[in-house]
Write a protein that binds this DNA or RNA. Structure first.
Lengths: 244, 244
DNA sequence: CGCCAGATTGATACACATCAATTCTCGTGG
DNA sequence: CCACGAGAATTGATGTGTATCAATCTGGCG
């Protein structure tokens, strides 16, 4: 159980939004990967926005006046230091909330990893709605608490795991999420580049690449192109991911 | 200028949150560092419990049937791998909530770093109270969202900072928290051992010790006993903590 | 006084970063 | 249809920050 997901921070600046709508109706994920289609009280309150690959949804430091929910695509939350080091706090997919902060300004940026559609809510409107409809508040609370748990797992990974453990955890986590979203899938699709993986895992691109190659050499995974990976021996991967 | 904290970090300016002037929430993690007396709707619902130094409040994997709030002392949230590696996700002090999960089981253990008093709430009762009193829900949401932001800052620290940057951030953060709690203080009191610091910062005891000694040698900090540190040149420390 | 856990300091090892080429992929234009 | 270039990924050679192994020092306490 670990989840790549989690989020909390949002709002917007150069919202290249368009009033487009998309099919994407994938279930809301809740930390444990469950999914169900159900009338979501949020659905009526937001506006849909679309962002092209690598566009910034909002910058760290922007006024946090909007909350977001991912409809489709993958979003990354990240922060870059003055000297260019970057850390990705989370990859978010359909159903995940982000930007739900209590502070006046976002503390991380949100960027589109792939083409992304999100729902965008005015912070003030949501706050009114929560007052009117407490169950909405409970639901948000639940999502945030799951994201917090995910972040804690991520701390263990960054603070105490080796490169191959990190990769193993990452791949298993992705596999689990995709299984929850699409049902069993033999192949995991990596929406992000090796650099993104590295910045999420606290490694360098080279180490990510070498570690992936080593796993491939050992027959634990396989891939013909970098973005599409098969788990050949998930038990071996799980052994690597051990932790507890 | 960096802060493990959650307050709007980037622009260095402080969020002059409307209305109340907030005493800078600076927690190493977690939400409200304040201990001011104000009517807290939670106050009537809990029972007080006391734990001796190093006692476990709950174990990872225990059924999550209680929520907690720190009254006094310092609590650590941590997880240990099979082979003994430990990661501390947060140090919590007066006012901080913990155990507020949506899951059935705790995913991290909670332990008393010092002698600790907490308030303990039955999960179910809180959930009823939230239904009855939505403002309570908002308050919890706020605390969780701050804890999430803190966790995200901690990810940057673990994923991308060097040993001396981590120590600098840690010390500044502690200083800020203690300033907020007690007013200006020339000396910071470290409630935790070097091992605890190491497990929070993703380092070893030796590295923590060496880094502290190096800072002392340079005249940036000073300490006669390990648990009580003076910041002699906080600007130098801030330079080290850079990030952004 | 002597014990012991925590802290500090020292010597050495190693996992991962860094620097440096290739190689692969894919879009573009001739 | 294929050269061309550019960015991403991979692979290789080497460096280094921190871990690991190992004393020594310190302060509290029975």
């Amino acid at each position: 159980m670990y989840a790549i997901t989690n989020s909390a921070v949002p709002a917007a600046r150069n919202s290249t939004q368009a009033g487009v709508l998309s099919p994407a109706q994938i279930p809301l994920r809740s930390g444990s990967g469950r999914s169900t289609a159900e009338a979501d009280p949020l659905d009526r309150l937001g506006a849909v926005a679309r962002y092209a690959k690598n566009r910034t949804i909002y910058y760290e430091g922007d006024e946090a006046d909007h909350y977001f929910k991912v409809r489709s695509g993958t979003v990354r939350l990240c922060k870059v230091t003055e000297d260019g080091r970057r850390q990705i706090a989370a990859f978010l997919t359909a159903g995940d909330l982000f930007g739900w902060t209590d502070q006046a300004f976002y503390s991380f940026s949100a960027e589109a990893v792939t083409e992304v559609t999100v729902e965008k809510f005015q912070r003030q409107r949501i706050e009114e709605s929560v007052r009117a409809n407490p169950s909405l508040g409970r639901r948000i609370l639940m999502l945030l608490s799951n994201q917090l748990a995910s972040a804690h797992e991520h701390l263990l990974l960054l603070g105490r795991m080796t490169a191959s453990e990190r990769i193993a955890v990452f791949l298993l986590d992705l596999a689990r999420r995709q299984r929850a979203a699409n049902g069993a899938a033999a192949t995991i699709e990596l929406a992000m580049s090796r650099k993104d993986m590295a910045d999420y895992l606290g490694l360098t691109v080279e180490t990510v690449s070498r570690t992936m190659s080593a796993l491939k050499r050992k027959g634990i995974i396989s891939f013909a192109v970098p973005e599409s990976v098969q788990l050949k021996q998930s038990t071996a991967l799980e052994r690597l991911a051990m932790a507890a």
